[in-house]
């Protein structure tokens, strides 16, 4: 299935120019693949642009992403800011939030969630009642308990070959090497299934074919005396984004409506005040 695509990938060159050309061709092919997967006629209200990306529902986020949201049929990576496991809950929360946004769009269909043994032991298994409270329908989740990273990546590739899925989530220890991540990206592009990879102990410096990479750190919730623990909050950085500029934000998750809100602008490069107001 992936063979014709592989043949058209330009070889990776050390120069930035060559890399850029390759990624451009890949994006174009991705768009073709998605358009091919869905008949262009058929009375669909949504145009190809909406097919292409799932809006995250918060203006500052969507504006930072060139496609106006999380590109469907592509690989996205998430890593905890602290690879020692301290941000495991936060990064799992952010991945779940991304998934809620992905499923909130037109995409429906099951989600394949692949986890390695070490991750299950260290951070526990995804828990249906908690996921339901977060805004996910556990009935749409299909879990694959793998042993090692290699099995997780294999299961992800199998899932990405099945266009009936809405998304594939994978949790590994380390981020895969460039070849493996490129295979995931190609498989996602060919089937139109979105892939999210959470590298529990990723360092952030790994080369990758992913369209975006996010770094997530835990963040204290809004402290209202007498109220206890507030809504989930994370410090989220868009570390890498093809065709975009890195940003970071402090995001809050509203589980009752299933969307993000901006808690505070931290970085000078992040959202301008006007955009923050827009987000409400």
């Amino acid at each position: 299935m992936a063979a014709p695509h592989v043949s058209s990938v330009s070889p990776v060159r050390p120069t930035a120019h060559g890399e850029h050309k390759a990624s451009f061709a890949e994006l174009r092919r991705l768009i073709h693949a998605i358009e091919r997967a869905t008949p262009s006629v058929g009375g669909a209200v949504a145009g190809p642009a909406a097919e292409l990306a799932a809006p995250l529902g918060l203006a500052v986020l969507d504006q930072a992403l060139p496609a106006g949201g999380l590109v469907r049929g592509a690989l996205h990576e998430v890593r905890p800011a602290n690879p020692s496991g301290a941000d495991a809950g936060a990064s799992a929360g952010f991945v779940s939030a991304l998934l809620v946004r992905l499923l909130a769009g037109e995409a429906s269909g099951p989600v394949l969630w692949c986890l390695g043994a070490a991750g299950r032991r260290e951070t526990g298994r995804p828990y249906g009642p908690g996921l339901a409270a977060f805004g996910l329908d556990p009935n749409r989740l299909l879990f694959a308990w793998a042993r090692r990273d290699a099995d997780v990546l294999w299961a992800m590739r199998e899932g990405l070959g099945c266009s009936q899925l809405a998304a594939v989530i994978g949790e590994t220890e380390a981020m895969p090497d460039l070849a493996a991540s490129r295979r995931l990206q190609l498989a996602a592009g060919a089937s139109g299934v979105t892939a999210i990879l959470l590298g529990r102990r990723a360092l952030g410096s790994e080369p990758s074919a992913a369209l975006t990479r996010w770094r997530v750190a835990a963040m204290g919730s809004e402290h209202v005396p007498g109220e206890g623990v507030g809504r989930p909050r994370w410090q989220v950085a868009l570390e890498r984004c093809r065709g975009g500029v890195p940003h970071d934000w402090v995001l809050e998750w509203r589980d009752e409506t299933g969307d993000f809100a901006l808690a505070a602008a931290l970085s000078g490069r992040s959202a301008e005040p006007a955009q923050a107001r827009l987000a409400g």
Binding site: T38, P39, G42, G43, A44, V45, A46, E51, E106, A107, S108, G109, P110, L112, D137, N139, R140, L142, A144, A155, E158, G159, G161, C162, S163, Q164, L165, A166
Partner: peptide, 27 residues
């Protein structure tokens, strides 16, 4: 599994069910 039309113009077809079954079997 929720297998309604993945997109509005793609109703759930027997092939979709079979494809999911095949995925589950391989896994």
């Amino acid at each position: 599994l929720d297998l309604e039309a993945r997109r509005s113009h793609r109703p759930c077809a027997p092939e979709d069910v079979a494809a999911l079954g095949e995925l589950v079997d391989r896994l």
